[in-house]
Write a protein that binds this DNA or RNA. Sequence first.
DNA 1: AACTTAAATTGAACACTGTTTAATATGGCT
DNA 2: AGCCATATTAAACAGTGTTCAATTTAAGTT
Lengths: 200, 200
Amino acid sequence: MARRNQHTKEEIQHLAIQAVETMLHQLHHEAISTRMVAKAIGYTVGTLYTVFKHQADMLLHVNARTMDRMYLHCQRGITDSNTPEHNLTLMALSYHQFALQEPNHWNLVFSLRLPENEPIPQWQQANIDQIFHLLENELTRLHPNMSQQTIQKNARILWSGVHGMTTLALNNKLFIEGITDIETLLSNLVHQLVFSWSGA
Amino acid sequence: MARRNQHTKEEIQHLAIQAVETMLHQLHHEAISTRMVAKAIGYTVGTLYTVFKHQADMLLHVNARTMDRMYLHCQRGITDSNTPEHNLTLMALSYHQFALQEPNHWNLVFSLRLPENEPIPQWQQANIDQIFHLLENELTRLHPNMSQQTIQKNARILWSGVHGMTTLALNNKLFIEGITDIETLLSNLVHQLVFSWSGA
DNA sequence: AACTTAAATTGAACACTGTTTAATATGGCT
DNA sequence: AGCCATATTAAACAGTGTTCAATTTAAGTT
């Protein structure tokens, strides 16, 4: 069989991406093979390689969508009528919640390894910047006189904490004898940093 | 060939672990196969399976040693004659430095996935606790009247930040246009949290 | 309507992977 | 010298990512 022309290249790409996304709801990304995806969309591995450079390329497309979804999720509920601290807390909780809701999608974003010498795609950096801008915006509202550079620094300090807590919690590397839940810990982190910025 | 009895089971185990550790200096852990390890130590895969339950089990043994090394590294330079903040900063910098020095070993610790239903080994939790105790000790010195629970909470808040920063930095997901180096960011994180704990 | 052309799709191959197990060769014991 | 227990292997199985020659067919041309 050849030349059935049922789908355009773009459609096949989309089908594959969707198939991976569906599988990720049950399977860790390391358990997803090209042949599985091909079978799921009714094509052969060979066809997949006419549409993606390699497996990692396919997963990168999945990541692009995950990061978009994550950005939208983190934005949810953010308003200028809230205090900056409240907004920052909302974002931190949303980030963590998203990771809990789609652990395999989230994991893929942070553990996908491209082949050597393959550059990190530029949209990825753009997407990271997008999230940081959200934070920097709140930090600016908090301290309008703070230098741009300090704000960028503090945004990164804060987000490292939120990200680290999410990673560690997801892998059960954070807790002893049910001391507190992570949501409290996240709120505390935000509160303590916000407090420290107002005191110096 | 069989029954050459050149090494005890323990020795074979050790040889394998060492072989993996050597390879990790050049290779990412996903690139290390059982056959590679077997060949490196002059045995066959089959022999490896008489000594380890499976590949993940072998890598878990590597992780045990990495974590011990990491603990020792983080302890380096810590003295009661330093201020608690200084000690905490030293630990944060050491943690990051260790990750930079042995990125593949460090990565393996946090990305090894055991087969489903396989419990996390209990020594791993013990090792995590060990590091947290180091932190909690400094936090206690900082605020002798703080409740044990608050100290445990704050140790986890701090370490999430240090860990998150290290992870993100290692994967180039933290920086824009050379704004500051991570060492500064780590020191700032420690300082800001220490400050916030003294102000409430 | 027949013929050519270009390309979509496949199947099969290659060199790997982790894991299991029957066969085997040998060190130590009687 | 002969036996046995077992350390070790070779081979098999079912998968993996990736490549590419071969094929089939839709569309374009005459």
